[in-house]
């Protein structure tokens, strides 16, 4: 601890960026060397990691546990579906815009009500809101396809109309990687900005932050909205990968997994949620291949989760927290 803070800030930052470049480099070459199954797996980790990172803005930096991120994720999916089904020819940028608008709209709605409550009450109210969206999507069959969801085709990958091509798994991986890296850098910048500092001060001591004169509620609303937008972005990516939107992804289970990713990987690190998603998905993959276990992989995973909460509350990357936020 003292050793870390004794190191000059510049070398610490340099070490951080070198590590960052290495990880991004590895992820860039990943689709070229991995077999198709693991290639798809890597893309999925990035998408779920992005969703978990969006939730980290609330859990790790503002001190609010959201159990409703499935709503933003799911609305991102359905927003993308709406764009891809109604506009011909399907356009990637419109899918992104529609998805972000849907998720952002839901986030404004949830934020307005839920941020009036603190701690446990906030967690419950986000859960209840996500269930409202779930019930609406599940029962409004004419528009959302109800239980069956919606299927659609993948749009072409086009960047500013300059160049256009069909998505291959490899280019899709790179596309996701680009979105994730940019999102990560943006969120990292936000958490280090004066705005992010206020969020962290809310986490540490809300009454004092209020007493200093910050409009805490407004900061929380913006935090929830930001978080919802990035969750929606993850939803759009997931919809593009799988070419469908289904009510299952609006259901509470997804929100629960997001919280698990955060706790396992390390809250308040932004990178931790990615590590948590990778850890969880790898665990699931390897456990579900064992005989007898298959779909019951959540029993051992749940037990590992509980043990981690008790003995490793900082998560896998918690020991790096200070460096990752430097």
């Amino acid at each position: 601890m003292t050793a870390i803070s004794a190191a000059p800030p510049r070398t610490r930052a340099a070490g951080y960026w070198i590590a960052f470049a290495m990880v991004v480099g590895l992820l860039l070459v990943a689709p070229l060397v991995l077999p198709p199954f693991w290639q798809r797996f890597a893309t999925e980790i990035l998408i779920w990691g992005l969703l978990a990172m969006s939730s980290d803005i609330l859990i790790g930096y503002t001190g609010m546990v959201s159990f409703g991120h499935s709503a933003f994720f799911g609305l991102g999916m359905y927003g993308a579906a709406a764009a891809l089904l109604t506009v011909k020819p399907p356009s990637l940028s419109l899918a992104l815009i529609y998805g972000l608008v849907a998720a952002g709209g839901a986030a404004v709605f949830v934020a307005y009500f839920a941020t009036r409550l603190r701690e446990i009450y906030f967690a419950i109210s986000t859960l209840v809101f996500s269930q409202i969206f779930y019930v609406i999507i599940f029962t409004w069959t004419e528009v959302t396809g109800g239980e069956n969801g919606l299927t659609f085709g993948q749009p072409r990958l086009s960047i500013l109309g300059l160049w256009s091509d069909r998505f291959t798994p490899t280019t899709f991986h790179w596309f996701v990687l680009a979105v994730v890296v940019v999102s990560y850098l943006v969120v990292r910048r936000i958490t280090q900005s004066p705005f992010g500092m206020v969020l962290q001060s809310i986490r540490e001591n809300e009454p004092r932050t209020r007493a200093i004169g910050y409009p805490v509620e407004r900061y929380k609303i913006v935090a929830v909205m930001l978080s919802g937008l990035f969750a929606g972005l993850a939803g759009v990516l997931y919809a593009l990968q799988n070419k469908f939107a289904a009510p299952d992804f609006v259901f509470f289970v997804v929100s629960g997994e997001v919280v698990i990713f955060n706790v396992m990987g390390g809250m308040g690190t932004l990178v931790g949620p990615f590590a948590g998603a990778a850890f969880f998905l790898l665990l699931r993959e390897s456990l579900s291949r064992l005989p007898y276990l298959a779909e019951y992989y959540l029993i051992p995973v749940g037990i590992i989760f509980i043990i981690m909460i008790i003995f490793l509350p900082q998560g896998l990357l918690g020991f790096l927290r200070r460096r990752l936020n430097a």
Partner: peptide, 11 residues
């Protein structure tokens, strides 16, 4: 404790 009981619920 919410997180822990959530884990219990999964199991």
């Amino acid at each position: 404790t919410i997180l822990a009981t959530f884990g219990v619920s999964l199991v």
